[in-house]
């Protein structure tokens, strides 16, 4: 209801200003809320979590007695010692290279422990052994199978002390996105 003509003009303009202000507040709040949501829900690529199962696999594997004797028979070495021997370029008493025996042993262990099929919950695995030489990482071997680019990972790491460097055994199991197990 208008009292005076110019007062009507002021009232209608003022109402529009109020509405615009209200809409601006709502828009700002929505934008802030969306940014906050996006930040809190963001996944940092493949998250790798420490797993007892993967750790037990490495512990049991590293303690396995291999077919390789380094000095004399029957001084057969464990897989841990074989990794060290491979890093130092040693050869077994039967003439096979330590690295060759190490790779084939790990391949057998991985094949028998983790069945990867289309329906399995384990979609892939990756075993990487590298030497940490004064902050330069040099791969000794990398064994991988399946798809480890998507989904969730559980893994474990073990350090093997060697002469001037540390050898690291890193194992990662990749699961499907639907369930961990």
């Amino acid at each position: 209801m208008c009292v005076r003509k110019d007062n009507c003009w002021c009232i209608s303009k003022k109402a529009q200003h109020e509405i615009v202000g209200f809409v601006l507040i709502v828009v700002v709040v929505v934008i802030v809320g969306i940014i906050f949501l996006a930040l809190s829900l963001r996944t940092r690529g493949m998250e790798i979590q420490e797993s007892i199962e993967a750790g037990n696999f490495l512990d049991a594997a590293l303690g396995l007695t291999t077919d390789c004797a380094l000095n004399y028979v029957p001084n057969y070495v464990t897989l841990e010692e074989l990794i060290r021997a491979c890093n130092n370029g040693k050869t077994c008493v039967d003439g096979k290279k330590a690295c060759e025996v190490m790779n084939s042993t790990f391949l057998h262990l991985l094949e028998r422990s983790w069945k990867i099929t289309e329906d399995s919950y384990v979609k892939g695995y990756r075993l990487r052994i590298y030497a940490n030489r004064t902050s330069i990482l040099e791969d000794i071997t990398v064994l991988a199978k399946g798809n480890c680019t998507m989904g969730r990972s559980l893994g474990a790491m073990r350090m093997i002390p060697s002469r001037d460097e540390d050898i690291v055994v890193e194992f990662r199991i990749c699961y499907s996105t639907t369930s961990v197990q």
Partner: peptide
């Protein structure tokens, strides 16, 4: 879960632990 299974083995007159 995974474990080591070890026993005593004799070869060439020596005893050693085989896991």
């Amino acid at each position: 879960t995974f474990v080591k299974l070890c026993r005593q083995e004799k070869e060439s007159g020596y005893y050693y632990e085989k896991c």
